[in-house]
Computed example of a mutant assay.
Amino acid sequence: MPRRRRLETGTDWIQLTTTAADWKAADPALLGTMLAELHLIRAFEETVLALAAEGLVHGPAHSSIGQEGGAVGSIVGLRSTDAVNGSHRGHHQFLAKALTHVSGAAIDPRDPVTPEIQTVLQRTLAEILGLAQGYCRGRGGSMHLQWFEAGALGTNAIVGGGAPMATGNAWAQKHAGTTDLTVNYFGDGASQIGSVLES
């Protein structure tokens, strides 16, 4: 009979919550931009799922509904030269980076769809639908969204597969003498994958 022993990490879990003082000090324009991005990403995802239900998405359409806040909150303050890469469920990460890039992190929630934002939404949808107008000419699809100019290194279909790419990009940024940074997104399923731990 095998022996079993429960293992635990030595890392403490910490919960962060906002206070009334945080909300009072928050920049209304930034909050409006974040709200606009959240709504745009959610509407985009709902559209993708509707098109997938009609059989118009030829391949997987991995929705990120419910995860928009983490992407918007962590990306809205980044520069275009800062980089992000995401998981296979990374529409929200890609869109948050692309929307922040074209808007300069300033979107009016009363009228959020500027011509530049419309182009981002259209090209992203085209990529997911496999159309040539997409960022990767329709070859990447839902799981391989990439736009280097915006700092979107790409989403990845491999569990934990983005970590080596993010590490390499961060190394290149450091050795180029920049102050740029790279953010890598992955889920709990990837936290024990060798490529993540090694990166």
Rank of each mutant, 00 (worst) to 15 (best):
M1H: 08
M1A: 05
L7F: 11
L7R: 04
G10S: 07
G10V: 02
T11I: 09
W13N: 06
I14P: 01
T17A: 13
D22Q: 07
K24P: 07
A25V: 13
A26V: 10
D27W: 08
A29G: 11
G32D: 00
T33V: 11
L35N: 12
A36M: 05
A36P: 09
A36T: 05
E37K: 09
E37A: 03
L38T: 15
L40W: 03
L40E: 01
I41N: 02
R42N: 12
A43E: 15
A43F: 12
V48D: 03
L49A: 15
A53I: 03
A53W: 05
E54D: 07
V57N: 00
A61K: 05
H62A: 00
H62Q: 10
S63N: 06
S64C: 14
I65A: 01
G66H: 14
G70N: 11
G70Y: 06
G73L: 07
S74C: 10
G77L: 08
L78S: 02
S80M: 12
S80F: 12
T81Q: 08
T81L: 03
T81F: 09
D82T: 10
N85M: 12
R89M: 09
R89E: 05
G90D: 02
H91C: 10
H92D: 04
H92Y: 06
Q93T: 15
L95T: 05
L99V: 01
T100L: 02
S103E: 04
A105Q: 01
A105C: 01
A106H: 13
D108A: 00
V113E: 00
E116P: 07
E116I: 07
E116F: 00
I117N: 01
Q118H: 11
Q118P: 12
T119H: 07
V120D: 04
L121V: 12
Q122P: 03
E127I: 14
I128F: 13
I128R: 09
L129E: 07
L129C: 01
L131T: 15
A132P: 15
C136I: 02
G140T: 09
Q146T: 14
F148C: 13
A150V: 11
A152W: 11
A152P: 10
G154S: 03
T155Y: 10
T155L: 08
A157Y: 11
I158W: 10
I158Q: 05
V159Y: 09
A163K: 01
A166Q: 06
A170I: 15
H175L: 13
A176R: 14
G177N: 15
T178S: 03
L181Y: 12
T182K: 02
T182D: 14
N184L: 03
Y185L: 05
S191M: 05
I193D: 02
G194S: 09
L197F: 07
L197P: 09
S199K: 10
S199D: 14
